[in-house]
């Protein structure tokens, strides 16, 4: 519900009937060089820097709230190290937008 006007506080009454794609994010922590492109460009603000260090002493990203991911693949397009990608969950489970 990013950027939605704060005027509408209610969870829409038809929200359980609306299907949105559900993404799963895969991160290869050891490849990450901590450039932060995926965090910066994610349109749904799904990612953030983690506190942990990888072998190269960078902070790899971690998923804040995977429910928000709509599997747009933008993170995988911008990652210079091919360290992150998303796949669409094909189960027919519905979830709230």
């Amino acid at each position: 519900m990013k950027n939605a006007a704060s005027k509408y506080w209610r969870i829409p009454l038809d929200a359980d009937r609306v299907k949105t794609p559900k993404g799963k994010i895969h991160i290869l922590k050891e490849r990450c060089k901590g450039c932060g492109f995926c965090i910066e460009y994610c349109p749904r603000d799904v990612l953030e820097f983690s506190d942990e260090f990888n072998e190269k002493a960078y902070h790899p990203p971690r998923v804040k709230d995977e429910k928000l991911c709509l599997c747009c693949h933008l993170c995988e397009l911008v990652c210079p190290e091919y360290a992150i990608w998303s796949t669409e969950e094909k189960d027919e489970e519905l979830h709230h937008p």
Binding site: N3, A5, Y8, D14, V18, T20, L70, C71, C72, P97
Partner: peptide, 14 residues
Amino acid sequence: PVTVPNEYDEGLTT
């Protein structure tokens, strides 16, 4: 893929 509250329905629908 994006759902947001519908202004026309005062946010009651998406």
